[in-house]
């Protein structure tokens, strides 16, 4: 597989993680709306939302940070580390 494809896949996986995390957050937010509509115990729902939403964002951020951090701090010579 060409390095380009791999690069693409890596970016895609990062994107996928964000999609996952964002959809979880959207889901939680939508549940908050549902809870409001149904007059459910709103404090429980908000409590969970407050913790869970940033948490998922944090996870995605951490991954993204690592990914871009690794990309950024590579030594210039691609061949030395990679393919012998």
């Amino acid at each position: 597989m060409s390095p380009k494809t791999i690069k693409f896949l890596q970016y895609a996986s990062i994107a996928w993680i964000w999609i996952f995390v964002l959809s979880v957050d959207v889901w939680i937010i939508s549940l908050l709306i549902v809870a409001r509509r149904l007059h459910d115990a709103i404090n429980a729902s908000v409590g969970i939302g407050i913790i869970a939403i940033p948490l998922f964002l944090l996870i995605a951020t951490a991954l993204t940070y690592v990914f871009f951090g690794l990309q950024k701090h590579r030594e210039v010579d691609e061949t030395r580390g990679g393919n012998p």
Binding site: S13, V66, F67, Q71, H73, R74, G81
Partner: peptide, 27 residues
């Protein structure tokens, strides 16, 4: 390809180590 894909371009540079360790510590 699997390892190339998953290694995220790791080369073991000190700066990469720093990035990785920092994140691991947070997590």
């Amino acid at each position: 390809w699997l390892y190339q894909f998953l290694s995220w371009g790791w080369q073991g540079t000190p700066k990469q180590h720093k990035v990785l360790n920092r994140t691991i510590n947070i997590l």
